[in-house]
Design a protein around this nucleic acid. Structure first.
Length: 135
DNA sequence: GCCAACGTTGGC
DNA sequence: GCCAACGTTGGC
């Protein structure tokens, strides 16, 4: 199983929204690298939900429940999306500041490529982040 | 196919 | 609100 991280601005779509809805499509990604990362996702893969801009912290864990398919909001037909199911909230959110301060998390795309909205997470990074999140 | 201009993301 | 980083567009 692979691990990922997906960003959303909470004033547009928050973790609270996602928990309430249960399953939601991750639409409106307009970046090939991010879109390709979603294309590589498999059913059962897990992803962190990160609040960008406001909050700047990892708040929850989701699971891929539908494989990559065309994004209906993309008129050009170039980009796709997956469906994520909300699984659980972190007991304590893990902030970007904590991640930047942790020596083993420096290689995360979140740190090195701040504009990438969907990025891979290694198993080691996943374990560290879960622990920091109180899970 | 290069590159300047421009637009967007997201941290600060 | 500013700006750095970076992706995209379009003229040549």
């Amino acid at each position: 199983m692979a691990y990922w991280l997906a960003k959303s601005e909470p004033n547009v779509w928050s973790w609270e929204n996602h928990v309430k809805k249960g399953v939601e499509c991750w639409h409106s990604v307009r970046n090939y690298q991010a879109s390709n990362n979603m294309k590589a996702m498999k059913l059962g893969d897990q992803a962190f939900f990160y609040h960008s801009n406001i909050g700047r912290e990892i708040v929850g864990i989701m699971e891929v429940v539908k494989l990559y398919y065309p994004d209906h909001t993309d008129e050009t037909g170039r980009f796709g999306m997956v469906d994520f199911k909300a699984i659980k909230s972190l007991k304590t959110p893990v902030t970007l500041a904590q991640i930047k301060a942790h020596p083993k998390l420096q290689n995360m795309a979140l740190v090195r490529q701040s504009r990438l909205s969907v990025s891979p997470v290694t198993a080691d990074e996943w374990a560290i982040l879960c622990k920091l999140g109180g899970l």
